[in-house]
Simulated scan of single mutants.
Amino acid sequence: MKHPPQIATTVFGDNLTAAVRFTELLAAVGVERGLIGPREVDRLWDRHILNSAVIASALPEGARVVDLGSGAGLPGVPLIIARPDLEVTLLEPMARRVAWLTEVVDTLSLSASVVRGRAEEPAIKRQLAGADVVIARAVAPLARLWAWSAPLLREGGRLVALKGESADEEVERDGSAVARAGGSQPVVEQRGADLLAVPTTIVVVTRLEPKRPERHDRGRNPRRAGKHAQRP
């Protein structure tokens, strides 16, 4: 496995040691457990660790974050290492991956929570509702991802989805469905352009306040209205 690139110090600062340890765990235990493919080991830093961590610039300070379908811990673990001010929950349905995430959190002494479940489950919606940000990487197409994310977000909260070359295509295809489901027009952004050879592409959707039905006076009862009219 390659040594950490110089920019890793810029991204992780004093927490670089934890980032290195996580990368080592992925390269060894992660491959053994099938969490990542062996061909990914030589590109862990650029394609996975730094690619995940640079989305930190899209998140407000102290945000409550849900990593939906965390899997191997991407992007949630690099994010919490880079931004320990965040309150991160790693949400994952598969038992073996939950076990892995729990080991990582304990080994690295991270202030993150691990929850087993799916975003669409009523119990998970109740437990994790009110998040400031939902993050996701390689989980589902945008429309489905928004349907899972929206119930977990507070009004004004945001989905930050890591996408590759398909970002513009997904926005064009799913933008209307997202809007109908209470989201803003999805916006494609790039993060880490000044650090990475290939910047991270994200799609950002904000949960909007539900539209209130307009009030009309057309249906008012004139006899009821007359009771309040001033007598001559």
Rank of each mutant, 00 (worst) to 15 (best):
A197Q: 14
G13C: 13
W148P: 05
P93T: 10
A8L: 07
R118L: 08
V98G: 07
I7L: 11
D46C: 04
R118C: 06
I135P: 07
R223N: 12
A56T: 11
V20T: 13
G34Y: 12
G182N: 01
L90V: 02
A131G: 04
A119R: 08
S57P: 03
R158G: 03
E169H: 09
V171C: 07
R191N: 10
V104R: 05
R144Q: 15
T23P: 05
K227G: 13
F12V: 14
A28K: 14
P210I: 13
R144D: 15
G37H: 05
G183K: 03
V204N: 10
T102W: 04
P38C: 14
R137V: 14
V171M: 00
L16S: 05
P78K: 05
A72H: 02
H216K: 03
K211W: 02
L44W: 04
V88C: 07
R118F: 07
L68W: 00
L16K: 04
W146E: 12
L208C: 11
P75G: 14
P4Y: 04
R126H: 05
L26I: 11
L196F: 01
R21M: 09
G219A: 14
A150I: 10
A95H: 10
N221R: 10
W45E: 12
V205C: 01
P122Q: 09
R83I: 07
I135T: 15
A193K: 06
T102D: 11
A63Y: 02
V187P: 04
L162F: 06
R83C: 08
A167M: 12
R220Q: 12
V115Q: 02
K211Y: 02
V114S: 01
A123C: 06
V114T: 00
K227T: 07
T9D: 14
Q127D: 13
R39W: 00
N221T: 15
D132P: 01
N221V: 10
A53C: 04
I135M: 03
P232L: 06
E61K: 10
A193R: 10
A193F: 06
R212G: 13
S176D: 15
S166L: 01
L91A: 09
W100H: 15
G62C: 00
R96A: 07
E214Y: 06
E169R: 12
A53W: 03
H3S: 13
V66D: 02
E170G: 10
L68P: 02
V134I: 15
E24Y: 09
V77Y: 03
Q230V: 15
D85G: 09
L74E: 02
V134C: 02
W146T: 13
R191Q: 13
A131V: 09
Q230E: 14
L50Y: 02
P213A: 10
P222Q: 11
F12E: 08
P151C: 04
A123Y: 02
R144F: 13
A197W: 02
I81P: 00
G226I: 02
A225K: 13
G183I: 07
L153W: 01
V11W: 00
P122S: 10
L59G: 07
E40G: 14
G192Q: 09
R39L: 13
R97Y: 06
K2R: 08
V104M: 06
D106Y: 05
G164E: 04
L142K: 13
